[in-house]
């Protein structure tokens, strides 16, 4: 009897151990990122890093100013959100409320496929199609701009926003919708005044995660934004090349000697990036939990 009990206990402990791996990994990521990131500040001032406006990692003396990269990330992400959020929500409404079963059956896999395309292929597409197009239409010296990055990131953030918003909209109880329709409201009034407000928290969580995706995307932005480390203005900053935090890490890591100040600076950038996405994740999770519809039964 006890033999079997011990065996069951042992198995449970083993399973628990694998469950805890995720926590351990997250913990290790923090340690390794922050350890090498903080190493920068042994010789370089933290304030200069935080508010420095120049990223000249190889000049003498080197300057590791975060701001141009941070703003680069922000402007590209902002542009992406402006166009992907309304579009994504519209598609989600269509799939969840208006489309017939057939259309939804076509659209949903399509969204999933869109989500599966590797970022480097998006980047390649942006590079050979979108960049020349922007250059010609807008008559710019180069098409590799923040705008190109925004458009590509917007397309890439769409699947996240669409599928999560659709979940949120679909989970609005049928009775609420019926109640509104029974009062003589039109389909659109019902969507606008009843369903969207009810699904708002889920949609906001989707947008937060979309932002997280966009900030963290590397290859695509690296291939289409031109990678010039200057602080962009707004809105004209959209039409010049920028350099994001992610692109900086990926571009420069190959060239720096391990253990140099520059190497640690890139880890510092990585830490900033990690903290940013960590916060967006937590906020998204919080919104989702707090306003989740209580569907009665279920865990």
């Amino acid at each position: 009897m006890s033999n079997r009990k011990y065996q069951e206990k042992a198995i449970e402990s083993l399973l628990c151990l694998s469950g805890v791996t995720a926590v351990v990994i997250l913990f290790l990521i923090c340690i390794f990122l922050f350890r090498d990131g903080l190493a920068l500040f042994q010789n370089y001032s933290f304030i200069d890093f935080l508010i420095g406006t120049k990223w000249y990692p190889t000049s003498q003396p080197n300057q590791f100013g975060l701001l141009p990269l941070l703003f680069g990330s922000i402007i590209v992400t902002f542009g992406a959100i402006i166009f992907s959020v309304p579009l994504g929500i519209a598609v989600a409404i269509y799939i969840a409320e208006l489309a017939g079963e057939k259309e939804a059956d076509v659209l949903k896999p399509l969204v999933e496929i869109l989500a599966g395309i590797p970022s480097v292929v998006y980047g390649f597409f942006g590079l050979v199609v979108l960049v020349p197009l922007l250059q010609n239409i807008l008559d710019l010296p180069t098409g590799q701009t923040a705008l190109a990055g925004s458009i590509m990131l917007g397309i890439m953030a769409l699947p996240t926003i669409i599928s999560m918003s659709e979940d949120a909209i679909s989970s609005v109880p049928r009775s609420i919708k019926d109640g509104s329709l029974a009062l003589g409201s039109t389909e659109w009034q019902t969507i606008n005044k009843v369903i969207l407000p009810a699904a708002l928290s889920g949609i906001s969580a989707a947008v937060m995660l979309g932002i997280g995706r966009a900030i963290g995307e590397t290859m695509t932005v690296m291939m289409v934004t031109g990678n010039t480390a200057i602080i962009p203005g707004f809105p004209d900053g959209l039409f010049v090349p920028v350099r994001t935090m992610t692109a900086t890490i990926a571009l420069e890591m190959g060239e720096v000697p391990q253990g140099s100040e520059h190497f640690y600076a890139l880890f510092a950038i990585g830490s900033v990036l990690f903290i940013t996405t960590f916060i967006t994740n937590i906020v998204a999770e919080y919104i989702k939990k707090k306003y989740k519809f209580n569907m009665g039964a279920g865990q």
Binding site: C16, R213, I215, G216, I249, N281
Partner: peptide
């Protein structure tokens, strides 16, 4: 414990791939 594990999974899912790259490197 469960909350902590699920929180960690959610955050790992949202962590940029380039950060994983940095971590792998370190």
């Amino acid at each position: 414990t469960k909350w902590l594990i699920e929180m960690a999974i959610n955050n790992l899912a949202g962590t940029p791939s380039v950060v994983f790259g940095l971590f792998g490197l370190a």
